[in-house]
Write a protein that binds this DNA or RNA. Structure first.
Lengths: 191, 191
DNA sequence: TCATTGACTTGCTATAGGGCAAGTTTTTAT
DNA sequence: ATAAAAACTTGCCCTATAGCAAGTCAATGA
C-alpha cells in the first residue's frame, strides 16, 4: 500500500518517522479504473495525489473542443492541479486515469495542515513546487526550441514504455501535435 | 530605493516589520545598464532579483546559435534562474537587462537563511515558487493551444507597452517565432 | 557627425505540421 | 462472439511559419 510512498518520502530533507506516520494516517490508498475522472473543470482540486502505478493525465478542452494534455504523471510522481489547489479556485482542467491507476491521496486541508505544522510537510510541498516548476520549464524549452520529432525523442527517453503503454492520441496531444502527424512521425522515425 | 519592494512584501502572508527590515538589510539596490549580463551559462545563479523598473530577459542559446527567450521580468516581478538557484547547479541560460533596469538583489545564502529562519522568508519563497509555476503553466498552455497571433494578443494584454518598450526581435523570441513572422504579424494585426 | 552596426521590413520560396476523408485495426460492451 | 465504437493509418491538399536575400531605417560609438 504505502511502502513505495514511504520509501520516496524517506529521501526528503527533514524526514522524520513520526511525521511520516502522521501523513500516512491522513492519506488514503485508492485505485482508479481506466478513464475515471479524478477532477473536472469547475471543481476545486482538493486532493494531492501520489502515483503508485499507472498514469494520470491532466488536460484542458478549448473552445473548439480540442483536448490539450498538460501533464502525464507516471509512477512516483506527485500530481495535483496546483493552480486550483494552491489558489483554491475552480480547475479549468480534467484529471483522468489513462489506465488503471493506483494512487495515494491526501486531502487539501490535511495536506496544508501538515505543511504548516511539520518540517517534513514543508519539505514535501517545497519539493513538489520546485519539481513542478522545473518540469514545466523543461516543457517550455521543448515547445519553444524543438521540433515535434525532438520532443517525442525526449519523451521516449524519459518514459521508454510510453509508446506501448498509453494511447497514441494522448501522447500526440501532450506533444502538441495531431494524431495524424504523430502517426507519421512514429512510422518514419520510431519503428 | 526599497519603497516599492517593501510595499509588495507587505502583502505577503506572515508579514512582519522586523523580518522585512532584516531582509532589506541583506538586500542591495542595483542599476544595470541596457544589455548588461546578470548571469551567464556555466555560472551558478547566486542572486534573487526583484525588478523595480526596466526589464530582465532570460534566454538560452541552442546549438545553432538561436536565442530562446524564456522569461521577461518587468516591474514588481521576482526573477532568478530558479533551476540553478534551487539546485545549486550551473545555469544554462543568460539573464540580461533589456533596457536600463533597477533591481533589488539578495544573495542566495542570505535568501535561504531568511527562508529557513523567518516566516516572511518562507512565505516569499513559497510565493515565488507558486507564481513561477503558474506563470510557466500559462506559458505552456499558450504554446500548446494557441497560434502565434493569439500568443501575441495575450502578451500585449499583459504588457500593453511592450511593443514600444523593448526590441521586437526579443518579443519574437519570447513568443517562439522568427522576427520575420513577428514583423508580418504586427503589420497585419496590430497597426 | 559620419560610419558602422544592428533593427526592422518585405518579396519570394520552402517546410513542418494541420486536417479531411476514407480506410484498417483494435478495443469494448453486450 | 459479435456488433459498435474507438484508435490508428495514410493519401491528398492546405496553412502557418521558417528562412534567405536585399532592402530601409534607427541607434550608437569613435
Amino acid at each position: 500500500m504505502f511502502e513505495h510512498f514511504k520509501s520516496v518520502l524517506k529521501n526528503f530533507s527533514g524526514y522524520d518517522d513520526e511525521q511520516m506516520e502522521l501523513i500516512c494516517s491522513l492519506a488514503e490508498n485508492k485505485i482508479f479504473k481506466k478513464n475515471d475522472y479524478l477532477l473536472t473543470p469547475g471543481k476545486i482540486c482538493r486532493h494531492m495525489y501520489f502515483v503508485n502505478s499507472g498514469c494520470l493525465r491532466f488536460f484542458g478542452v478549448n473552445e473548439e473542443g480540442v483536448e490539450n494534455t498538460r501533464y502525464l504523471g507516471f509512477r512516483s510522481k506527485f500530481a495535483s492541479n496546483l493552480t486550483s489547489f494552491i489558489q483554491f479556485i475552480p480547475s479549468e482542467e480534467y484529471i483522468q486515469s489513462v489506465v488503471e491507476t493506483e494512487v495515494i491521496v491526501i486531502g487539501r486541508t490535511d495536506f496544508y495542515r501538515v505543511e504548516k505544522n511539520t518540517l517534513l510537510g514543508k519539505s514535501i510541498y517545497k519539493n513538489i513546487l520546485e519539481r513542478a516548476y522545473i518540469t514545466t520549464q523543461k516543457r517550455i524549452y521543448s515547445f519553444q526550441g524543438e521540433m515535434a520529432e525532438e520532443r517525442l525523442t525526449g519523451l521516449i527517453l524519459k518514459e521508454p514504455e510510453i509508446l506501448s503503454s498509453i494511447p497514441h492520441k494522448i501522447i500526440a496531444s501532450y506533444l502538441g501535435i495531431t494524431p495524424y502527424t504523430f502517426s507519421r512521425l512514429v512510422k518514419n522515425k520510431f519503428s
